[in-house]
Design a protein around this nucleic acid. Structure first.
Lengths: 110, 110
DNA sequence: CAAATATACATAATTTACTTATGCATAAAA
DNA sequence: TTTTATGCATAAGTAAATTATGTATATTTG
């Protein structure tokens, strides 16, 4: 299992990316999706997720819609226009980071 | 420039990896090496580096040797035996993390 | 049928790993 | 001679987590 510490700083990007792919999702769904996609490698805690969603919403990147499904209330989040643009930025930042780390890990060939 | 926030959590691994490659290094040298290797993408601040080195030393992963070079005192750090083993662990954790993140970023093909 | 687990959201207290700012000291360059 | 580079260090503040709770309903299991 990958060190959970390493994921620090990439949570927002993960959320944005998932919403970009899936249109709209609710909190619990995000935690389950991430667990599934990463084969249990990454387990987003609720204490991290919900405050992160609230922050992204307050920053205007996400918008909320309450829906009752099976007599259960869910808060569905989706990207705003601003959020979509920011997603592009965050993703390229993350890709740059991943590339940089790969460079550091790969023994120089020269 | 990659978001510096993303590097949170990977500093120790970077330090260990560099020492593993170069045998021994001093603090300032590490900052310059990282700047060079990442083409300026990552600038390790002194406020992050020195406490990290001290912590790794106190944990028994690094050992120190003071050397006077050109009338300047340098603290050279190198891996202990325990440190070498831990480097292997940290590197595989980091690789697992990078792979996981790549998976999350790559649109599923199924 | 009762108890445990899953679903669903939320927040407060604490911890951790940084950034920012500052300090000291010497050497080299402008 | 003043700035920049080299070299180490630490204190204060901040951001983003973890851990621990709390509430509530639905479903599964023994």
């Amino acid at each position: 299992m990958a060190n959970q510490k390493l994921f620090k700083g990439s949570l927002n990007t993960i959320i944005l990316k998932l919403l970009d792919e899936n249109g709209k999702m609710y909190g619990y769904e995000i935690t389950q999706k991430v667990k599934l996609l990463t084969k249990g490698e990454l387990n987003i805690t609720e204490g991290a997720l919900y405050p992160a969603l609230h922050k992204l919403e307050s920053e205007g990147l996400l918008e909320v819609e309450m829906l009752k499904v099976d007599n259960r209330l869910r808060k569905y989040y989706s990207l705003t226009e601003v959020g979509s643009k920011e997603t592009v930025n965050k993703l390229s930042e993350l890709e740059a980071y991943l590339k940089t780390m790969q460079t550091l890990l790969t023994p120089k060939l020269a």
